[in-house]
Every structure is written in C-alpha cells, then in structure tokens.
Design a protein around this nucleic acid. Structure first.
Lengths: 179, 179
DNA sequence: CTCAATATACTCACCCGATGAGTATATCAG
DNA sequence: CTGATATACTCATCGGGTGAGTATATTGAG
C-alpha cells in the first residue's frame, strides 16, 4: 500500500453519511487543509478509483437548478477497509506520520474517542522501531559515506522530534497510556 | 518545477563524463543511496524523459560479449540546466531540503567547492523564509482548527530542527558565511 | 566441472499523484 | 445588469514508482 493520498480521509468523511465529491472535497479542505493538500480534480480522481475498487458506490441525483450530483455511499467493503486502516497500521516516516497519524486521530476523536489511545500507542511503537532501524543503519554505515550519513542523521533527528511532539499530543488529548 | 526526483543528480553524474543508464544508477545508489531511493527502472524512465527534453543525447554502443549500451552524454542545454539548478534554487520543505540541498552540496564539494558557501546561504535564507511563513500561518489560524494547527506546528518544528542541522553542516564543511 | 548466484544492461505494463484548464449553471452583491 | 463567487464535475497530460521480464556473462562453491 504505502498509500500517501487522502484516500482514507475521504472514506472516513463518507462514513459519516452519504455525500458527493464536491462536498467531500470542501470538508476535507476545511478540516484538514493544512494536513492534506488536495485539489478538487485529484479528489474526484481518488473517488473514482475507490468506486472502481468497490469501496464506494454512486448514483446520479438530479437537482432542480444546480448541476446533477453523483451521490456517493460507502459499501460494506469500503467501511471495512476504512476500519482496518484506522485500527491497523501506523506510519513510519516523518511525512506520513504527520499526514496519516493526524488523520487517524481526527476520525477517532470524532467518532470513537476511546480508540485514540490505541492509535497513539501503535504510532508510538512504530516510532520507536524507526529509531532503532535508523540508529542501526547509521552504526553500520561506512564512515566515508558522508552524504548518506547526513541524510540518515537528519531523518533520525526528525523522528526524535516526532517523539516529543507525540508526547505533547498525549498530554493535550489526555490520552492514558498503560505503563 | 517542484521537482522531487533525482533528475538533477543523474544530470550531475553525467556531467562528470559520458556514461550509460546502468552505471549512473549504480553510482547514484552507491553515493547517495540513503538520500534518494531510486529503482533501476525509474532511473531509466527519468533518463528517457531527459533525452526527450534534449538534456541528454544517446547512441548505441555494441559490446563484444555483454549487451549493447546506450551511451549517454549531456547536451549543452543539459549542462546549462544542471548549472542553473545547482546555483539557482533552494528547497523549501523538510523532505526536499534533505534531498536537494544534500545533492547540491555533494556536487559542489566534488566539482566546485568554492560554491558550497553560496548553496549553504541560499538554503539558509530559504529556511528563514519558511519559518516566517509557517509562523504567520499559525498565528492566523482559527483556534478551533486543532488538527491543522498540529500539522503546521510539526512542520515549523521540523524547519527549526533543520536550522540546527544546517549549522552543524556549516561547521563540518568549514563553510564561511559573511555576517 | 557444473550449476546457481550474481552482474551487466535494458524494456514493458501498469497504476497512482498532481496540475491546470475547461464546462455549465445559479446566486448574490454592488 | 454585470461580474464575482458557488455548485458540480470532466479531461488531457505529465511525472513518480513498482515489479516483473529478457538476455547474456562471469564468478564461486561444492
């Protein structure tokens, strides 16, 4: 998968009730516009793909005066895929943590706040694993590889930074983590 | 452009002398494999595009035993484009700084070390501008936009981190910056 | 000696991400 | 009444990225 588009964010918005492309795009921009940057046309493209995959189904609704809409609904498969994404994974690099973790938290807070702790913990564990992986890589990197070293070094520090940021999020949302 | 592929890295390697796809890919992986992650097929795809654009020209060279090669050379346009990239721009977000700035520095150190300071300064200035931009955005963000705020906040901190990292690079390479 | 792994060199089919422009109608403010 | 903004969606085009396939040559382990 290694999915870095707001595909699941759209699925999640649609999980709150049937809607249509224009509206989903608007809502995503309003609520998560500084998380995901999504053009209108790209939103439609993703929705089309989701429909082709069977996560969404659509039918045309005529309107009195405005152009017809494609009313979209989640299929049960789509709902399952969204739940699996929400419960299942955790992102592993800086960018995808910012995007995916925040999106997971957003939907959890809205719909099932009791899940926030699980999401937090899964992400925290993943971050620890990344620190381990990058530290090992750095330790075994031949010393003459200066530029590779600088790159890995920055990545490692970025992950450490995310650790601190996660900790503040834990406090902010009063997430209880078992010792 | 907002180009986030190792296009210019390939151009830069070719600037050191005519070569062919397989070799360029190998060298990129060896020297900058933890900066750019580039599959072989993607390397060929980029080279093809560069040829279509007229930055590269190729001709077939038969070999005794091994498969024929497409020998690649920079055109004068390609050389110019590479120089413009090297001298011209500076990346503005965390990821592209890691990728592009390090790549610029790599080629400068190899071929024209006196340029390192200019590249450093251009990047530093760009980072200051990003800090300004993100700080302003955050200041004007409505307080109810929690998730947008968290995202911008992380981005801002990442840029601050890069500031420190840049400073260490300055020391490491003994770059002299006028006050 | 032989066979399998590795190296050389490149191609192809496919999908996803992203932009920018275009289309058409409706409403609202000045 | 006119021009900006909102509603609603389409299309062409490009670039990024994967995974598998093709074909031959060399090397090394048993």
């Amino acid at each position: 998968m290694s999915n870095l588009s707001p595909e699941f964010a759209l699925l999640g918005l649609l999980a709150e009730g049937p809607s249509h492309g224009y509206d989903l795009h608007q809502r995503l921009v309003t609520d998560l516009g500084h998380v995901w940057h999504l053009s209108q046309s790209q939103a439609y493209a993703i929705l089309k793909r989701l429909e082709a995959r069977g996560d969404i189904k659509s039918h045309t609704v005529e309107q009195d005066k405005l152009p017809a809409r494609q009313k979209l609904q989640l299929t049960s498969q789509g709902r399952r895929r969204f739940q699996e994404w929400l419960d299942g994974g955790a992102a592993s690099n800086a960018r995808s943590i910012r995007l995916e973790f925040l999106t997971r938290l957003y939907f959890a807070q809205k719909n099932e706040p009791e899940k926030m702790a699980d999401i937090y913990i899964a992400q925290f564990d993943q971050v620890q694993a990344s620190i381990q992986r990058l530290t090992d890589l750095l330790a075994h990197l031949p010393p003459e590889q200066e530029y590779n070293r600088l790159s890995l070094d920055l990545r490692l520090r970025q992950i450490h930074l995310i650790c601190k940021w996660l900790d503040e999020i834990k406090t902010k949302f009063q997430i209880e983590v078992p010792a």
